[in-house]
Write a protein that binds this DNA or RNA. Structure first.
Lengths: 130, 130, 130, 130
DNA sequence: GTGGTCTAGACCACG
DNA sequence: GTGGTCTAGACCACT
């Protein structure tokens, strides 16, 4: 598994985990329909609490990234389903404070669009390597 | 004052305040050298505790957006000083999880760059209206 | 714990605490990765408010001496991380007024370098005693 | 006059003033017996409050750097008199927290003694230029 | 049980 | 009157 927890990070563990799984999906390391390790197993692998993993899975389920199948295994949702959760206004809301700070600090729209491309390139190069 | 707190929001008050002030600077509503209301005043205006405002001001000071001036109280820092706090890697780090989720949900790089332009346009149109 | 507050001292409590912890790290009494008492515990031990301890910890965190670890609570940062916060110009700035006064009062560079060695010896002899 | 106040500095004005005058003496820009501008005049020159200048002068008087003459003009004390105020233990006390932080951050005794020499050189080169 | 946040009231240093 | 410091008591998120 490619997941790694930074215990000395400000970000809560469940949120680190959430972000990494989402990035795994974005970069194609986790594919549609692929199933994730059980709560118990992932907790053991990472050396963290069961509740924490559970919280992450629930969060990802509510966000539409995962679905819990009847046999209790957790799998990556289909792309079409995920698309239904898209909300540009929400994304904009999240970007706003980051871009505001960046703008104040002299990062112009050119720089920012470059960054966006950089990140999307990261996603795609990962896909190719798989 | 254009600041407004949403008490029902999950985001801590001090952080809402921080974001709004940064956006005020980005959009030119708060100009370099302009002074902000005193801790007590702003706390009274917003109906919150002065320590919460104090925390926000201190945070913004540490981030380089504000400086305490011995006679003008708290003022907006100069652009040049703010520029020293720019770190593209940090911005990228902040964008990463947002773009990952957006990408999973079918927002391609085209859409995202449009959003970036939208937001930068917001900043600039505000500037023109002043 | 080796920490001791002088309540009759002009220096703010949180700053006394900060200095003593930094000296503890410098002298090896607090080692890399070692964890400090909880905010509440230390506050109780020293007979001060937990917010004061909290302020100290946050200050030391911002200065790179401490990090909050999600399981070990607050721990001493690694030496490498601390090294990133070194700024000779800043140190020089801090030394300037002290050395100016010392110089006026007839303490020449010889005396001062001796003092520097004295202090560094203190740090090292403490290390050996552990 | 070579004095300059930074209103956006954390350090109180009276302390900035104190440090600069001490540095002026250390570097020979202010010589033994030379008299300083009146409280009123210096306050006007710097655009600060009378009380602030007064506080500085009183502080410097208590520290032995200045003496108030009978005709109310303030003059730089003689070197011999200043020497009586020397206390190595006090200097050491002041250096301690600075060197502790520096040491943690990887500035060894070599680096620090260099800094000391740098600063003393500053004092002396100023003297030669006068 | 930990640190983080918010509120509240008090005193002080500074200008 | 300003920000800075300290104390006190409360609730919450995280693990």
């Amino acid at each position: 598994m490619f997941l790694k927890i930074q215990f000395e990070n400000d970000m809560p563990i469940y949120e680190q985990l959430r972000n990494q799984i989402v990035q795994g999906i974005a970069s194609g390391q986790l594919k549609e329909g692929e199933n994730l390790p059980s709560v118990r197993q992932l907790a053991a692998d990472l050396g963290i609490n069961l509740h924490t993993v559970n919280k992450t899975y629930n969060l990802l389920k509510n966000e539409g990234f995962l679905v819990v199948h009847r046999r209790k295994n957790v799998i990556v949702n289909s792309c079409e389903k995920m698309h239904k959760y898209r909300s540009l206004t929400k994304i904009k809301e999240q970007l706003y404070p980051i871009l505001a700070a960046a703008s104040c600090r002299g990062a112009d729209r050119q720089k920012l669009t470059e960054l966006v491309h950089d990140i999307y390139n990261d996603f795609e190069t990962n896909k190719e390597n798989i």
